[in-house]
Design a protein around this nucleic acid. Structure first.
Length: 568
RNA sequence: GCGCCCGUAGCUCAGCCGGAUAGAGCAACGGAUUUCUAAUCCGUAGGUCGGGUGUUCGAGUCACCCCGGGCGCGCCA
């Protein structure tokens, strides 16, 4: 099934061929309804290339354009734009096609890739906090969309389970652990001993040295150290799993840093052998002398003391993903501060001859109302678990107000769907690069571009079907009489154009924005066009539009990792 | 000091490869409802796109220079 955009683009290139003109410009949705439904700037681009008058070229193109029954004869406007207005009949037919299609018109990609997506990546012995929200939610949404488009996706949780911090954790475990506290709340106790050790180490060189010794023992495979480490990892994983369950997120593999531990020496040896790395001041370092941007920013892959660092791990990770997992694309959904680091890693991978497409998907921070990094009043990171539970609690309050008669069981479920959806949507509806200000009021508002607003549109549709006592009707032909009906139908046909766009530049906010506009179009339709009260065949036609709108909303939100309730 | 990112309505934000008179939501103001969930819709008002110079038929978008904010720059991850 082809989108209108694809059909018109094809017709345009046919017309250009007939006019003996090369393909130029682009065919995009109209910037304003006054210009019809689609527009092209082809004549403007060609005019510039060939030094001819754009409007004259546009007239030539229009004359040769075979509109068929898809659109009205195109119109030249402005400096040389060509505008296309769809025929209502074609819209009705296309909407029927979408209605009959499981995939709602979205084509599978013709070039399926093996994509490893690295997202989330929490640290062991530290609770997941707000800082992990964006990576986790964004990575999951990209994974869902890539999968839907037909790519083979491996979701990898690159857990921080092997850093320097373990020297401190193990020291704390041996010297400061409160067994009872550990039983009550394991992660909190592990965090406590880590923090306290960290403080002591800062002021006391002896403690620092002891921690270093613990780290050496762990890395040498000492049994007691490994046991403690295992226990800490297990406790942390429990916390992660709880959060992932709440968020409805899963991973295909969770190869943390420790997974690569015994591969690190080989990485360094290889790079030394190939001459990419060299010894400098006792450490093994990679220089990028011929790269102006990185010339003064070398990367250490083995410390003077013989220890490896995260750069080494990341290089081993590239190796594993490409050679063992057969990835030809790797997406790193990691915050902006690590931009330089990934430039260095990618550059080394390139020098080693890796051809996989490595992308650092950068994103901004979540800020508190004070415009600073979101923290608790005492300056601590806010545990993600608390944040999500707070979201559900607040959503519950709204459900209690709006729909008190629902059962308790139902309310819990609905509150979770709304609360978690709100947190995710607040993030995904924003361009990923901008820092955004976290606000409960805004994200849980029933007005505006929020998850609850979209969920409510879906709920209203479900309500119609409950009242009708029937499921989607069988119709042969849609009747698009009212302008609200035509607009809604056009909007529904655009879903297939929007979804693939998200991956152009990793912008789920494009999809979020589309869904918001769809919900708007639906509400306008809902106001203007009675469904159940109208006579056949209008009734069935409108019921079909409702059905399709519901399915697109549901699928679209699902691609963002957000669920819809049946009532709220 | 060098590098990267950001600066758009009172507030929160869209605006991908340069395209027509810069758009939403919230807040403000004015209308609509004995409802298919008003948890809504329709309308009004609100802007020298941080500032400047340049590139061209055309710049919020590209280049360069300033201003303001954030982040990063060999032995943490």
């Amino acid at each position: 099934m082809e989108t209108f955009q694809a059909i018109l683009a094809k017709k345009l290139s046919d017309a250009l061929a007939q006019a003996r003109l090369p393909i130029a410009g682009e065919l995009t949705p109209a910037t304003d309804p006054r210009f019809g439904d689609y527009q092209t700037n082809a004549a403007l681009v060609l005019g510039k290339q060939r030094d001819e008058k754009p409007r004259v070229l546009a007239e030539q193109i229009v004359a040769l354009f075979n509109a068929g029954d898809v659109c009205e004869p195109p119109v030249v406007a402005g400096a040389g734009f060509i505008n296309f207005a769809l025929c209502p009949g074609a819209v009705a037919e296309k909407t029927m096609e979408v209605l009959r299609d499981e995939r709602l018109g979205v084509a599978e990609t013709k070039s399926a890739r093996h994509i490893v997506i690295d997202f989330g990546s929490p640290n062991v012995a530290k609770p997941m906090h707000v800082g992990h929200v964006r990576s986790t939610v964004l990575g999951d949404a990209l994974a869902r969309i890539a999968e839907f488009l037909g790519h083979e996706v491996i979701r990898d949780n690159h857990i921080g389970d092997w850093g320097t911090q373990f020297g401190m954790v193990i020291y704390g475990w041996k010297n400061l652990l409160d067994r009872q506290a550990l039983q009550r709340n394991p992660l909190a106790e592990i965090v406590r001993i880590y923090k306290e050790t960290n403080e002591r180490a800062t002021s006391d060189p002896q403690v620092r040295e002891a921690c270093r010794q613990e780290l050496v023992r762990l890395q040498a495979g000492d049994k007691e150290s490994i046991d403690i480490w295992n226990e800490c990892v297990a406790f942390s994983m429990q916390d992660f799993e709880h959060v992932y369950k709440l968020l409805d997120i899963h991973y295909d593999i969770q190869c943390g840093e420790s997974f690569y531990h015994d591969r690190l020496p080989a990485v360094v040896e290889r790079l030394l052998k190939s001459g990419i790395a060299e010894t400098s001041e006792g450490a093994i370092v990679v220089f990028f002398r011929d790269n102006p941007e990185l010339a003064d920013k070398p990367l250490i892959i083995r410390k003077r003391d013989g220890g490896f660092n995260y750069a080494t791990t990341d290089l081993a990770t590239v190796d594993y993903r490409v050679n063992d997992l057969k990835a030809d694309v790797i997406w790193y959904v990691v915050g902006a501060p690590q931009t330089l680091h990934f430039k260095q890693i990618f550059e080394i991978a390139r020098r080693e001859g890796y051809t996989a497409d490595l992308r650092h998907i950068v994103f901004g921070s979540i800020l508190g109302e004070d415009r600073k990094l979101m923290k608790t009043r005492s300056g601590e990171n806010i545990p993600l678990r608390d944040l999500l539970e707070e979201a559900c609690k607040r959503a519950r309050k709204i459900v209690d107000e709006k729909n008190p008669h629902l059962s308790d069981y139902e309310k819990i479920d609905i509150a979770q769907t709304i609360g978690i959806g709100a947190v995710k949507y607040a993030d995904l509806s924003q361009y990923r690069m901008t820092d955004y200000i976290f606000s409960w009021e805004k994200m849980l508002s029933l007005h505006g571009n929020t998850a609850p607003y979209l969920q409510n549109a879906y709920v209203r549709i479900r309500s119609i079907f409950r009242k009708a006592g029937e499921s989607s009707p069988k119709v042969e032909k849609l009747i698009l009489g009212d302008s609200a009906e035509i607009n809604l139908a056009k909007r529904l046909c655009q879903f297939a154009e929007i979804v693939p766009q998200v991956l152009n530049d990793f912008r789920p906010n494009i999809l979020a924005n589309y869904l918001f506009e769809l919900a708007n179009s639906f509400h306008t339709f809902y106001e203007a066009c009675p469904v159940l009260k109208s006579d056949e065949p209008t009734r069935s036609s409108r019921l079909s539009l409702c059905d399709l709108t519901g399915r697109v909303l549901q699928r679209g939100l699902e691609l963002l990792g957000i669920k819809v309730p049946e009532r709220m």
